[in-house]
Each structure stands twice: as C-alpha cells, then as structure tokens.
Design a protein around this nucleic acid. Structure first.
Length: 471
RNA sequence: GGCGACGUCGCCAAGUGGUAAGGCAGGGGUCUGCAAAACCCCCACCGCCGGUUCGAGUCCGGCCGUCGCCUCCA
C-alpha cells in the first residue's frame, strides 16, 4: 500500500513518490524569532515531526530542513524597543525555541538555516531573478515582477486581480503593480544591513526560504510544509521566485497544517490570545499536547481549551494503562494467540490509517484497540514474550507519533528515595487488611492518595503508582 | 466583498456510495471489605432543503452556520 497525502497544490490526495527513490527532501517554514513561541508554533512543529517520523518509519531517508527568520521588521522593532542587538536577540529566541523543540520530543532538523547566515545565497537568487527581468530595482529596493510570472497564484488559487483585491493602501506607489513584493529592502538608519549590488539593505521575507531550499536541498524538493496561514502570500511567493529562477517545480508536495484555536479563533501573536510553550509545559506533558493534536487530523483546526485538554490527558492515561506490568504467569495458550493477533492487527490498522494522508486519528484508534487487548490479556493472567511484544508494539506506534508514553511513576513525582517508604506503608496496610482493620487501612490509602500515590488492590497484592493529584 | 476549508453522539473526533472507528463523559454489570483500576454490555438516522443513484454522512446544486486567507503570522 502506497503512502498518500494531500497536496495543497492540486487540492487532492495523491500518491507520494519522492523525486529520488527512497529519499525525501523536506522543508518546513519555521518561526520569526522575536518573542516566545506559543503552542500554535508547536503544533506545526509537532505535525511535521510526525510526518517525518512516519516517513522514516516507512523506510525513507528524510533530510529535514527548517529555518529561523532572524532578520525582519518585527525583530528590529522589538530589539529597538528593548535596546538589544536585533541579531543577538533573535539568536537568543531561536536558542530558546530549540530547547522547546527538545522538550516537546521533536527530533532535531538536519539543518536550521538562518537568514543572517544565508545572505550570499539570497543575493545570488535576487541577482539571478534580476538578470532574467523577474525583478526590478527602485532606489535600492528590489521587487519581484509578478506580471512576468505566468502561473502566479496557482497554489492559493487566486488570480492576479484577486490577489490585488486586498492589498494594503499604504503600498509603495512606485511599484509597477501592487502585487509585486520586496526581494530586497534598502537600509534605513539604525537597521542591520548587508552590502548588495543595489546598496546596503536586507532581504524581503519570502526570498529566504527560496534561497535556503536551493542551497541545502536543491532546485526541487519533495515536501514543503507550514501552517495554512502561509499559503498566501508566503508560499505563493516562494514558488514564484524559485520557479522563475530555476524553471523547475519548486516542491512536489505542499502540506499545510490547520490552525490551533483558542476560544474559536486562531492563536496568534497579533490577536494576543496565546499560550506559550513554556506556559503549557509547566502544567502538562508533551504527550498530552500530541494526544490533543493527533486526535484530530492535521489539516483541520484544533480547538484548544480546558475541556479538550483534559479529555486528551485522560485519553493519554488510558493509553498508559496498556503499559502496566503483567501480573499472571501464563505465557502461551489461547490468550497469547489472541493477543498476538491483536498486536498484528493494531500495527496493520495503524499503518493503513497513516498511509491515508497521515490519519493520526485512525492510528490512535488502533492504539486504543491494542490497549484493550493488552489489558484483557493481563486480566487473564498472561505474561511473557507475547505480552511484552504487545507492549513493545504500543511503544513503537506511540513513538511514530512522537509520544514517549512514560508512566508518571518513572517520570516524575516520586523521589526515588521515597519509594521504599511507600512500599513499607503499602505492606503495613496489607497487614491491616488481613486483620480486617479497614479504618486504619483506608486511612493509609486515603492519605497516600492525597499525596498523589494511588493504591490499587489486585488478587496478587496491592500496587501503587504516582499520579498528579487531582486539582 | 473575493478565494478556500469545514459542519458526524453531551464533548473531542475518524469515516474508500452499501445501513456510522476511537477517546472523554454517562448508564448497567463482573471483580472488591469498601474504593480504584481493568474487563464486559448499552449509548448517533451524520446542519437544513432539493437532486443523481437500486442505495449517500460519503457525489451535485441551493440555503444557514463556523473558521482560515486576502496585511505580519505555524
């Protein structure tokens, strides 16, 4: 079964075939680093991390490039306000972003290009476009001549007239057409500037991705990704620049994730309705965010609110029940066969779903089916290789979605040093129960519970684990 | 206004034209001293109106509604 994915360019689900067999060149637009990243950024990073992990799982060798925009109006403004050097400030935010990505269990990209480090390539691209009359200069500014690009608008499905309809009133009136966009901006006093054939200045926004792709991945890449708010004008303009310069298709597939929404609106810096990654991680696990996002489809908007987050956390807890240890002694027999079959079915169902445009929701369903099969097998006393294989498969499928599926006990909450004392209390409680001293036994259970230690009685004795105390 | 996406159980959310996955919540059981967990069972005529078809949540048209883009934006 081939992998199929939705291509924004064709507005259809297509079979995926990379340019070079077995290899995938992938570029994802990264953030402009002028403030703390929020979980909307995280969603894009998470979605494409999942895409990359799945492609890798399916045997592709993926080269993954994602950029930092570190030269930009907003960065300059913010730096001026706070009296910092713009490049240094951007660098600090980029560094922090990288830490967030690591905290979110996002695999590092192969290359993280920055505008400030790609200047030679950017100038070369602009020069090439100028040579072919795709660009023109106006007193140190260089603009892309949209009218010369015959298929401009093919990604966002807009005609030139439509693209013009909403253009700003305070446009540079010297431009040949309002739809023309800046490739190079001449330097104003107090701004960081680089030397160019058109005088000192800095690049326009869209040109960086074109230059970075060309430089690091070549003239045609396989997958270009980003949020769907980038389709126009950013990605449209990238296509215009790249294909005008090379005469070749820029990206074979365009993938766009839906927006994370807070109270019914897109989470964004300009709207001010955001939750930073820092804020999120202070209260919740990275797995919970993945659960929330991958419960739905990556192209659809995700509602982020208290309810959806709580629901995701409970769903995650349920997933984790499948990883609790076996407690019986059977290793073979009908229950083992049933579990083995369920394990194979779950993996097959997971792959079938993911092959269909990364249907993580269906993949998640397969994981829950597996959890039920594991829990049933455990209740029936199964242990041993088949039980372990099932749990390993659960981990394996979770890992494709970037989930660590770590039990709370192993992860945090309980100081390792406290464990023997808890064991002791649980043992004492067991003795009290034997003596039918219910009140005293329940007191231990309740008080430990208040501290986040959950005790469960089983036929083979009491077990305990740590859980975040309910708020 | 233009372009586009979407409207499926109380909530979140899948769904290749043939009578609706999964999760959360809820109800009923098994187990248990009680509890918790786990397991079993129950819980949807798919926004509205037309049309195509033997048959539509799934295709076509219209309407209503939500969201995104059109300006920096993951």
């Amino acid at each position: 079964m081939p992998l199929r994915l939705y291509n924004t360019l064709s507005r259809q689900v297509e079979e995926f075939t990379p340019l070079e067999s077995g290899k995938v060149k992938m570029y994802v637009c990264g953030p402009t680093v002028y403030a703390d990243a929020h979980i909307g950024h995280a969603m894009a990073a998470l979605v494409f991390d999942m895409v990359r992990r799945y492609l890798t799982y399916r045997g592709y060798r993926v080269t993954y490039v994602t950029n930092f925009t570190d030269v930009d109006d907003k960065i300059i403004r913010r730096a001026n306000e706070t009296g910092q050097d713009p490049i240094e400030m951007a660098n600090a935010f980029a560094q922090k972003y990288l830490e967030h990505l690591a905290d979110l269990n996002i695999q590092p990209a192969d290359i993280y290009p920055k505008v400030s480090e790609t200047m030679d390539e950017i100038l070369r691209v602009i020069g090439g476009l100028s040579d072919e009359a795709y660009a023109y200069e106006l007193n140190g500014d260089v603009y892309f001549r949209v009218s010369k690009d015959a298929d401009y608008g093919k990604l966002s499905r807009r005609t030139l007239d439509e693209a013009l309809a909403g253009t700003r009133v305070d446009e540079d009136l010297r431009k040949e057409s309002p739809a023309d966009f800046a490739l190079w901006k001449s330097a104003k006093p107090g701004e960081p500037a680089w030397q160019s054939p058109w005088g000192p200045g800095r690049p326009g926004w869209h040109i960086e991705c074109t230059a970075m792709c060309l430089h690091h991945l070549g003239e045609t890449i396989d997958i270009h990704g980003g949020g769907n708010d980038l389709i126009f004008p950013h990605h449209e303009n990238e296509i215009a620049q790249s294909e005008s310069l090379t005469g070749k298709p820029f990206s074979r597939y365009w993938m766009h994730n839906g927006m994370l929404q807070l109270s019914g609106e897109k989470m964004s810096k300009s709207l001010g309705n955001l939750i930073t990654i820092d804020e999120f991680l202070s209260d919740h696990s990275p797995d919970a965010l993945r659960m929330l996002i991958f419960t739905g489809h990556y192209r659809k908007p995700v509602a982020f609110n208290k309810d959806s987050l709580e629901s995701a956390e409970r769903a995650l807890e349920r997933l984790l029940t499948g990883l609790r240890p076996a407690k019986g002694s059977k290793t073979t027999g009908a229950d083992a066969d049933t579990l083995r079959e369920a394990t194979e079915n779950a993996r097959a169902a997971f792959i079938a779903s993911m092959d269909d445009d990364f249907n993580t929701s269906g993949g998640m369903a397969a994981m829950f089916e597996l959890v039920r099969a594991i829990n049933t097998a455990r209740d029936k006393g199964l242990t041993g290789p088949f039980f372990e294989a099932a749990q390993r498969t659960l981990h394996e499928l979770g890992a494709i979605l970037g989930m660590k599926l770590e039990g709370a006990r192993a992860e945090s909450g309980v100081d390792v040093a406290a464990a023997p004392f808890i064991d002791l209390l649980v043992e004492v409680r067991g003795d009290l129960r034997m003596a039918k001293q219910w009140a005293a036994a329940d007191k231990i259970r309740n008080q430990l519970n208040a501290l986040g230690i959950v005790i469960e009685d089983t036929p083979t004795g009491a077990e305990w684990r740590y859980e975040e105390p309910a708020a």
